[in-house]
Design a protein around this nucleic acid. Structure first.
Length: 289
DNA sequence: CGCCAGGGTAGAC
DNA sequence: GTCTACCATGGC
């Protein structure tokens, strides 16, 4: 089926599909012809394209609510940017320079967890390659027209496949055992990811639970919380963010722990600190030194 | 060939 | 709490 969704119009911070998807937090989007993109969301293959203030899509079933949630089409993006800008002149400038940034709401926290376990000391291309390899090996094929993709395997599917395929994929850095361990924790119910996404589970608790997984430290826990658990105050601190914060707000050579930097960011940027962090990340190569 | 990539862990002090 | 070696692979 084909369908079309209205994009909540924002004059100041317009929606731009290509800029949202290219090099975004979600690694499995592929570019097709004529502005179409191919993705797999929650076991659905979907093609999306922007037509002015509409989002067109092709899929097997009605994905209106899924796409509205994923792209935050009904959210007041202006309000988020306005909050950040009012709190910090530096953020106002960054918002002007990067008006197309959106933190996507990824529907499957499990896939997000695996993705960011694989992000440690890796680049975007490498992360995407690992995710595709895992999906092709252990997921199920889904087809739309000539486009064949693979669903991301559930923890159960990963466990059924056993340790051998993950090992032979040579993921590096003990990633295969981290993924297997995480699959066990989730499958046994010792870690309930869907419960972490509820508002009754506050950010600090969600973060702490995630960090009980092997290969999930503070940075990766924050990525999972921000991108798939609806915790906008989560503030992932990597090497770029560390440098950006210190160069903008502290004397050169200042020594601060990541914990101190995270607290600083949440106090300074407020509830949407995570969005501020993404703006800093976007400007990582253009930032004045 | 060497260096880097959106870190995490374990062990040392 | 802070510092360090080590982890493994692909891209350039």
């Amino acid at each position: 089926m084909q369908a079309r969704l209205p994009i909540h119009p924002s004059t100041r911070y317009p929606f731009d599909l290509a800029r949202v998807l290219d090099g975004s937090q979600d690694f499995r989007w592929r570019k097709l012809e004529q502005g179409w993109y191919s993705g797999v969301l929650d076991r659905n293959i979907v093609h999306v394209r922007q037509d002015h203030d509409d989002l067109e899509y092709r899929a097997h079933t009605d994905l209106d609510s899924l796409l509205i949630s994923y792209f935050r089409l009904h959210e007041d993006i202006d309000a988020i940017y306005a909050t950040l800008s009012s709190r910090d002149p530096d953020m106002a400038a960054l918002a002007r320079d990067h008006p197309y940034l959106r933190v996507l709401r990824q529907p499957d926290p499990w896939e997000c967890t695996v993705a960011y376990i694989c992000s440690a000391n890796n680049n975007v291309k490498g992360i995407g390659r690992i995710l595709e390899d895992i999906a092709e090996e252990m997921g199920k094929p889904v087809q739309l027209g000539q486009d064949i993709r693979y669903t991301f395997p559930s923890p159960e599917q990963v466990l059924e496949a056993g340790p051998t395929p993950l090992r032979t994929m040579r993921l590096g850095l003990e990633r295969h055992s981290h993924i297997l361990h995480a699959a066990r924790q989730v499958w046994r119910g010792e870690l309930d990811l869907s419960r972490l996404s509820l508002s009754e589970t506050p950010y600090p608790e969600a973060r702490q639970r995630l960090m009980q997984l092997r290969g999930v430290g503070p940075k990766i826990a924050d990525c999972i919380a921000l991108f798939s658990l609806d915790k906008p105050e989560a503030f992932p601190i990597d090497t770029h963010i560390r440098k950006a914060l210190i160069s903008r707000y502290f004397p050169p050579g200042a020594r601060l722990s990541d914990k101190q930097l995270g607290e600083f960011a949440r106090v300074r940027y407020g509830k949407y600190a995570g969005w501020a962090g993404q703006l800093l990340f976007q400007s990582r190569w253009s930032a004045a030194s």
